[in-house]
């Protein structure tokens, strides 16, 4: 440490960030990441999917949802390397002449968005409930957790179907299409919150008895500040790990719902919707319409899952 630094005890935000990056570069996490090629590949695939989803209009060769650019003359082209294929459509086209490769990119966009939003919603709700439940304790805790237990006994998909069904009957028909995506997010989110609540609760219970919480109390820190600034950062690790695995789960759930026809509408298809649409043509020989979206879904979910599993193990001090 130089003398000059000694006179400035408070570092700027920028130097703190640099400090943080240096810390990360030397961390066990990065070491364990680089040493596992499977994880690196999974990470790259996930990043490619996310980037492709964000920049879909730039990446996709066609805009499959612009009716003006579609031509029924282009329908049912097989993949370009198969006999009868067209070089313009790498993975072929569907019944409406939409480029499969482009619909996959746009579909992944919807799938990832719904997945992310659903997980964020689950985490927000679950962590809020779990944190307060564990911190307050007593009958309040017992009540909330029994409620979570009851929900855990009902399969998540059933809850999602139930929410979807209620929304469909309750909402006016002209709003359905617009709001369908939010209904799916809510349905998947609400069916997964108990897991996060449990993790957050057990974390809050073990953190709240630690002396740093007691000392914050003695200093005069209000309870909600203790909860948000002291306890929350210390329980977030396992929650985020669960969230990564939950993302894969949410994407699968969304695909399932969409495949069953209760998910996102065909006008803005997700991977699940594409699989369902393609399914109708499977027996008539147009296998590429459903196979490629299915493959994309499998690869995406597998990559996210592998990443989540690795993160869980890498952050678990017992497995180091």
């Amino acid at each position: 440490m130089t003398d000059q630094q000694a006179h400035i005890p408070h570092q700027s935000l920028g130097s703190r960030m640099v400090d943080g990056i240096r810390r990360f570069a030397g961390s066990d996490l990065l070491y364990s990441f680089v040493r596992q090629p499977v994880v690196v590949v999974a990470f790259l695939i996930t990043v490619i999917f996310i980037l492709a989803a964000i920049f879909a209009p730039l990446v996709a060769p066609h805009d499959p949802f612009n009716p003006a650019s579609l031509s029924l003359m282009d329908s049912f082209f097989p993949p370009s390397w198969v006999e009868g294929g067209d070089a313009r459509f790498l993975l072929g086209t569907d019944n409406q002449g939409r480029d499969i490769f482009s619909t996959i990119i746009y579909g992944a966009r919807i799938s990832l968005m719904v997945g992310f939003a659903a997980v964020v919603f689950s985490i927000a709700l679950g962590v809020l409930v779990g944190l307060i439940s564990g911190f307050v304790g007593g009958w309040f805790d017992a009540l909330l957790m029994r409620f979570a237990d009851i929900q855990l006994t009902i399969p998540g998909l059933l809850i999602a179907l139930l929410v979807d069904g209620i929304a469909r009957t309750a909402l006016p028909s002209d709003m359905r299409e617009e709001i369908a995506i939010y209904v799916v997010i809510f349905a998947i989110g609400i069916s997964n919150w108990p897991q996060y609540a449990r993790v957050a609760r057990s974390g809050a219970m073990s953190e709240k008895v630690k002396d740093y919480v007691a000392s914050a109390r003695i200093i005069g820190t209000p309870s909600w500040v203790i909860l948000l600034r002291h306890v929350l950062p210390n329980i977030l690790g396992p929650v985020l790990v669960l969230g990564t695995i939950g993302l894969a789960l949410a994407i699968t759930s969304e695909a399932t719902l969409s495949f069953l026809g209760v998910g996102v509408p065909p006008t803005t298809p997700s991977l699940g919707t594409l699989i369902r649409i393609g399914n109708d043509f499977l027996f008539s020989g147009e296998w590429w319409i459903t196979l490629f979206p299915s493959g994309a879904l499998v690869v995406l979910v597998l990559a996210v899952n592998l990443l989540g599993d690795w993160l869980r193990d890498a952050l678990n001090p017992k497995l180091r």
Binding site: K210, D211, Y212, A214, S215, A216, I218, I219, G220, H230, N234
Partner: peptide, 16 residues
């Protein structure tokens, strides 16, 4: 506020 303070036994648990 704060006229009574406490120092804890375990220095590993008393600092966040």
């Amino acid at each position: 506020r704060g006229r009574l303070q406490m120092i804890f036994q375990d220095p590993f648990a008393s600092l966040n």
